[in-house]
């Protein structure tokens, strides 16, 4: 954690629609080293917005301000489009939620991964194809030659997500932002995808931002957790210490989970406190 790959101080994001301003993210600060950082929260808490703002993937109606938004020695805040294009995918890449919607349905998966590689590396088609097949093997796809020529609708959800991971890792980025990468998948397949992701992140020494709403999953998979509520970070805690969380929101979320081992008549419903918005 000595060297931070990414430093964010007081990040705020507003959306302006019809003259009305919505504060989506307020004063979020964190730093990311070679670690697995989770951002958790309910829908609408701004967790995905934070992830997207790092790559400036927002529509023009978004206004981003921050004291620092630094990636390596680069200031992301005043980077121009050209610089950003050289970062997106190449140095910071993003894994989306649902492979069914984020893969191109009319291109074979192999061609899509090759395209990602060729966009950032000047090599021959042949070399790119070779790299793609190697990458497919690294995400534990058994028969890469066969899978290369399949279309997204011909692969299962778990395999689709591993293909996404392959596509995002092939340009060899330094940071990966994974936005709910397993929530569209079955429990049994989730583990498979997570272990592939874990293996590659550890092997290549990457920084991972893991956006999720699943506290149980995050608890075991990540090193550190940021809990967001209504656009702010209400708590930052080591994943292993999640049981000793201080903030009532984090504790409420944990208590609301139905569990196999502790069965209760009624699930405690989260009582929201208006002071969480201002503290």
């Amino acid at each position: 954690m000595s060297e931070a790959k990414l430093q964010v101080d007081n990040l705020s994001i507003q959306f302006i629609n019809d003259g009305r301003t919505t504060d989506a993210v307020r004063n979020v600060s964190f730093s990311l080293g070679r670690e697995k950082l989770a951002i958790v929260g309910e829908s609408g808490s701004g967790k995905s917005t934070v992830g997207r703002s790092l790559l400036r993937l927002h529509p023009a109606s978004a206004r981003i301000s921050a004291d620092t938004l630094r990636f390596g020695d680069l200031n992301l805040l005043d980077a121009d489009e050209k610089t950003l294009r050289s970062i997106r995918g190449r140095r910071i890449s993003m894994i989306m939620q649902d492979p069914k919607y984020s893969l191109n349905p009319v291109m074979t998966v192999g061609a899509q991964i090759t395209e990602a590689y060729l966009a950032h590396h000047r090599v021959s088609q042949r070399e790119a194809r070779k790299q793609t097949l190697e990458m497919l093997e690294k995400v534990h796809i058994r028969d890469p030659e066969r899978v290369y020529s399949l279309y997204p609708h011909e692969v299962s959800g778990g395999m689709g997500q591993r293909i996404m991971i392959a596509m995002m890792l092939i340009p060899n980025p330094e940071i990966i932002i994974a936005d709910e990468p397993t929530s569209a998948l079955d429990v049994s397949v989730q583990q498979q995808v997570l272990s592939v992701l874990d293996e590659l992140v550890t092997q290549r020494n990457l920084g991972l931002i893991f956006i999720s709403h699943d506290l149980n999953l995050v608890r075991n998979f990540c090193d550190r957790v940021l809990v967001m509520y209504a656009g702010r970070v209400v708590e930052s805690i080591r994943a292993a210490d999640l049981d000793q969380a201080q903030h009532p929101y984090t504790r409420g979320l944990l208590a609301a989970l139905p569990s196999l081992t502790q069965r209760r008549e009624r699930l405690p419903v989260l009582q929201r406190d208006p002071s969480w918005l201002t503290d």
Binding site: H213, L215, G252, L253, A256, L257, P258, L267, V269
Partner: peptide, 10 residues
Amino acid sequence: DVSVQAEILN
């Protein structure tokens, strides 16, 4: 969301 899930399950 988990918090809403708890309400619906109740």
